[in-house]
Simulated assay, not measured.
Amino acid sequence: MIEHARRGLRGLWRMLPKPTSTPFTFCYALILLGTALYADFGDQETVSLLLRESSTDGAHLAERPLVVLIASALWVAGGLLSAYGLAFALVLAALERRVGGARTAGVFLLGHVLATLATELPVAGAVAAGSLPEASMHRLDYGISFGLMACVGALSGLLPRRGEVALLGVAVLTCAQDLIELIDPLSSWGHPIALLTGVACRSLIREDGSAGGTGPAAVPGPRAAEATDEDVLL
């Protein structure tokens, strides 16, 4: 049992982002770690102010869209204890190994932006039409979950069939649970939109029908197959 635990830890360590093999994910993860630490242990009044100013609500999107779209993706909802942090590191690192940092960043950004606009703009329209109160334009909305879900959709298409089904199955079940519980309607609808965005990006991040970049999946052979099987654990 101890040996199995050691193997599991070694496998997890190999899948985590590294500064040499996955620099984009590694640097981004460091930023998220820093903001999560500050959110958990920093001055809470300042944290609340920063989160409000980073929110991609309707009012902020109308005033300074580029600033809040970037700032909102610098925080992990739930802080250090959030499962989003580990999922981010594993999923984006696996995607970056296959398609490179630029494409990974593009998928993440596209999912983050499209899902945000697709959920917030209808709210703004409903407020303008008088169907929703003005307070709906000032809700708290931040985090990496939309971008992460887009990367899940893109990564699933680069895995062996078994891994694709498993990863998409988990993502679909998560989206379904969100929609059933509907605790936060905008996030609940944003997650499947982001997932579909990532799935739609599959053909854009491939070259000649295979993953681009210099990661293991771009180089055929036993070592590539071994690395791909490890990422099925995601």
Rank of each mutant, 00 (worst) to 15 (best):
A105R: 03
S210H: 11
A129Q: 13
L81H: 13
E164S: 10
T119E: 08
A200N: 03
P122M: 03
T25W: 00
E230G: 10
L51W: 08
G78W: 00
V99K: 01
C175S: 12
L233Y: 04
A129L: 14
G147A: 07
L37E: 05
G143Q: 01
A126M: 15
T46Q: 14
S72C: 13
Q177T: 12
I31Q: 09
F108S: 02
C27R: 10
P185Y: 05
A129R: 15
Y38K: 09
L117W: 03
D57N: 15
T228K: 07
G106N: 05
G42F: 07
G111H: 01
A135M: 08
P160W: 13
G11W: 01
R139W: 05
T119V: 15
Y142C: 06
F41L: 13
L159G: 05
F88N: 07
A217L: 11
L69F: 08
L9Y: 07
L50G: 07
A29K: 02
G125I: 02
R97D: 07
S136H: 13
L51H: 14
A59D: 06
L233V: 04
L233E: 08
G100E: 02
G213T: 02
G212L: 06
L140S: 14
G163F: 13
P160Q: 08
A118I: 02
T116G: 04
A115K: 01
V219Q: 11
V113G: 00
G190A: 06
R162K: 12
V107S: 02
A77W: 09
L109N: 00
L121P: 02
K18C: 04
D40H: 11
G153Q: 04
E53P: 00
T116V: 10
Q44V: 07
H138I: 03
V91W: 06
I183Y: 11
S187I: 12
L37M: 10
G106S: 10
G153P: 03
T119G: 12
R206A: 06
L204G: 13
A129K: 15
G106Q: 04
G153M: 04
I205D: 00
A118S: 09
L30E: 09
V113A: 09
